[in-house]
Design a protein around this nucleic acid. Structure first.
Length: 277
DNA sequence: ATATTCCCCTGGAAGC
DNA sequence: TGCTTCCAGGGGAATA
């Protein structure tokens, strides 16, 4: 569920609630989420260590502790965090509860159980965990530019929509922002990525950045489950141009009922066939 | 290697 | 009302 803007929003909200605290206890409220929750693996190294940073890497949340220990988290499709007082009753689908040294309880809630919580060690403070080292560049960093995209796509036949959702190509882009960025760039989601010109790739890079930055400014997109840590919704749903608008008027060409929904690699794609080629 | 398809799981909405 | 089907911000394994 959360894509780059949502994960970034969550990290920003978690940071002041976690940094400087220690984890004093952990409870797994279910045997497994995506992977088995070995309670040992969750607390063995981390208890008693001070949290020094919370940051986003791709769509992951990395909580760094003193002495380069870290906890890598991913929210899957339906995961969310809350920080409440230790005695608060558990909500339905609370999966993990970490007790903090300031008397608060940090909880992972995830109805669908696709979330990941995995401890690891970093090579250096502020570093990227080994398990995330094979991912593509961050779309907001300068390494993701037209040349890079053009080069990475060359010789491939995969539809461009699937290509930009592949986290080995570029991270952080999921189903919503892939659709929105392609609409903004005027590129058909069905175009084989290897047949995009350099100019088109540059346009797409700009569109991706544009959409992600605006979504960040709005605190992300809330359609169903997504909430930030304090329960607030992301406001970008109001600004979506094509996602979820099947059968509605295209906001660019103004033609009635042109926004179409197709399925690519098992995921819904929304686009305007008159504006996107 | 590259590109689909299927699957993990639960709940809500829509259809009948 | 109640049952069935479809759908969902992800990603990894299995399959062509």
């Amino acid at each position: 569920m959360p894509e780059l803007p949502e994960v970034e929003t969550i990290c920003k909200a978690l940071r002041p609630r976690l940094v400087g605290r220690e984890i004093t206890g952990v409870a797994a409220l279910i045997e497994s989420i995506r992977h088995p929750l070995d309670e040992h693996a969750l607390d063995e190294r981390l208890c008693g260590k001070r949290i020094v940073d919370v940051r986003r890497v791709a769509k992951y949340v990395v909580v760094e502790f003193a002495d380069v220990d870290a906890l890598v988290l991913h929210l899957g499709m339906s995961g969310s965090f809350r920080v409440c007082t230790v005695g608060s009753p558990y909500a339905p689908h609370d999966r993990i509860a970490w007790q903090l040294s300031d008397g608060m309880s940090w909880r992972l809630n995830d109805p669908r159980r696709f979330s990941i919580a995995k401890p690891c060690r970093l090579a250096t403070p502020g570093g990227v965990p080994d398990m995330l080292a094979r991912l593509g560049p961050d779309p907001l960093e300068t390494a993701f530019d037209g040349d890079y995209l053009h080069c990475s796509c060359s010789g491939r036949t995969q539809p461009v929509k699937n290509a930009i959702m592949d986290q080995r190509m570029v991270v952080g882009i999921g189903n919503i922002y892939a659709c929105e960025a392609l609409f903004l760039a005027g590129i058909s989601p069905k175009r084989p990525c290897g047949r995009l010109s350099l100019r088109s790739c540059q346009r797409l890079v700009d569109a991706v950045r544009d959409v992600l930055r605006k979504a960040l400014d709005s605190g992300g997109t809330t359609l169903r489950n997504y909430r930030s840590v304090d329960g607030t919704e992301g406001k970008f749903a109001l600004e979506l141009s094509v996602y979820g608008r099947e059968g509605e008027m295209c906001l660019r060409c103004g033609t009635a009922a042109t926004v179409r929904r197709i399925v690519q690699a098992g995921r819904s794609t929304f686009y305007c066939p008159r504006c996107q080629h």
